[in-house]
Computed example of a mutant assay.
Amino acid sequence: MLEGISIKQVSIYCPESVINNQYFIDHFQKQGIDIKRILKKTGRKKRHVIEGTKENSLTMAINAAQQAIDAASLKSADIDLILFSSSTPEYLSPTNSLLIHKAIKGKDDTLCYDLNGNCIGMFIAVEQAARTLYDDPDRDRALVIGSDFLNLWADPSHPITYSIFGDAAVALILEKDHSESGLIDVRYLSDSRFTEEIVYPAQGLAKSLRDGAEHRYLHWGKFSGIDSVRFAEVSIIELLNKHHLTFEDIQVYCFSQFTLANIKLLQAKLNLDQHKIIYVADEYGYTGTSSPFLALYCAIEHGLIKRGDNLLFWTLGSGYQAGSMLWRY
């Protein structure tokens, strides 16, 4: 266990514009497509979306980061590591984390880097940040931001990508505080059989830039994420058994918000208490890399978590890779 690393603050930023299901139902009816079954399976009702040209994944990240620093009563000079995760980074060069560092006026010796693990990216980033703080005696606080502008590449003719995504950023501050909080354990699965199902650019970067290949929208093939439910079931049991915990010892489950159907399937397989499972994608849409931590934010805001509670995360990213993480809050 990486004891003594606490989740000090979680803050979010969402665009003001909110679109409900009826817009998408009407949109696809004009194409002769009924998407009500998709909306029910994914559990969508509303989603926050960027409109216009003033916002993107970087601006959302900066807003969330500054909110987190202010809410934690910290200064930018208190941050030793900035880690940015996104499937839709505004820039490939320089790193977006360095641009966030500039925006918040970070100190000179801050370590900054970007991480793209697709929808599991922020999950990986939080683990890596915790390990860095634990191993490095000179770094005490990390700012981890997950931000996706998924509607940027949503195809208006594709029933799934156009209807399920929401845009949001979540900023999380980890702090070395010598408490009993910390990352208890983590498990990963990499199943590369699905690498052709969710692809952007659809034909790769070289063909897009050099040869002018079509690259406006995300390519979405056949992928429901249901294969990762089996991994979640097995890995959660392994984590609990290894650390001598029971399901009753877990106060909150923060799962991928990709589909409500997969959450319900996992709940049924493990006989989980539904009141401990945080589901927020009916309000925010599927926000990609930040989705399990958006659930964490809402759990904290609603007073469902207190210090010392055990949290369990599970999420997945395209390709696909999945992870389960046990954390003592």
Score class of each variant (00 low, 15 high):
43 G>L: 06
43 G>D: 06
44 R>G: 07
45 K>R: 02
45 K>A: 03
45 K>G: 01
46 K>W: 03
47 R>A: 15
47 R>D: 14
47 R>W: 13
48 H>T: 01
49 V>H: 05
50 I>V: 13
52 G>H: 14
52 G>E: 13
53 T>N: 15
54 K>N: 13
54 K>Y: 12
54 K>R: 14
55 E>P: 10
55 E>D: 15
55 E>Q: 15
56 N>A: 13
57 S>H: 14
62 I>W: 08
64 A>M: 07
64 A>C: 08
64 A>Y: 09
65 A>D: 08
65 A>M: 05
69 I>Y: 05
70 D>I: 12
70 D>W: 04
71 A>P: 04
72 A>H: 10
72 A>E: 11
74 L>G: 08
74 L>E: 12
74 L>S: 10
77 A>E: 15
79 I>K: 05
80 D>E: 10
84 F>M: 11
84 F>K: 00
84 F>H: 10
85 S>R: 06
87 S>R: 07
88 T>F: 03
89 P>F: 13
90 E>K: 14
91 Y>T: 08
92 L>S: 12
93 S>T: 07
94 P>M: 09
95 T>L: 11
95 T>A: 10
96 N>R: 12
97 S>M: 13
97 S>R: 09
97 S>I: 08
98 L>C: 08
98 L>P: 01
98 L>Y: 03
99 L>D: 04
99 L>T: 04
100 I>Q: 00
100 I>A: 04
104 I>R: 07
104 I>G: 06
105 K>D: 12
106 G>F: 09
107 K>D: 07
111 L>D: 02
115 L>H: 00
115 L>P: 00
115 L>R: 00
116 N>G: 03
116 N>I: 00
117 G>Y: 08
118 N>T: 15
118 N>M: 15
120 I>V: 12
120 I>D: 03
120 I>A: 14
120 I>Y: 00
121 G>Y: 00
124 I>T: 14
126 V>C: 13
128 Q>D: 11
131 R>M: 15
131 R>Q: 15
135 D>N: 06
135 D>Q: 07
137 P>A: 12
139 R>S: 08
139 R>G: 05
140 D>G: 08
141 R>F: 08
142 A>F: 11
143 L>G: 03
144 V>Y: 10
146 G>N: 05
148 D>E: 04
150 L>T: 11
150 L>I: 13
151 N>V: 00
151 N>L: 07
152 L>E: 14
154 A>L: 13
154 A>E: 11
155 D>H: 03
156 P>Q: 07
157 S>N: 11
159 P>R: 12
161 T>N: 03
162 Y>S: 09
165 F>Q: 04
165 F>V: 03
166 G>C: 10
167 D>G: 11
168 A>Y: 01
168 A>N: 02
170 V>Q: 00
170 V>W: 00
170 V>N: 00
171 A>L: 03
174 L>K: 02
174 L>T: 05
175 E>V: 04
175 E>N: 07
177 D>E: 04
179 S>K: 02
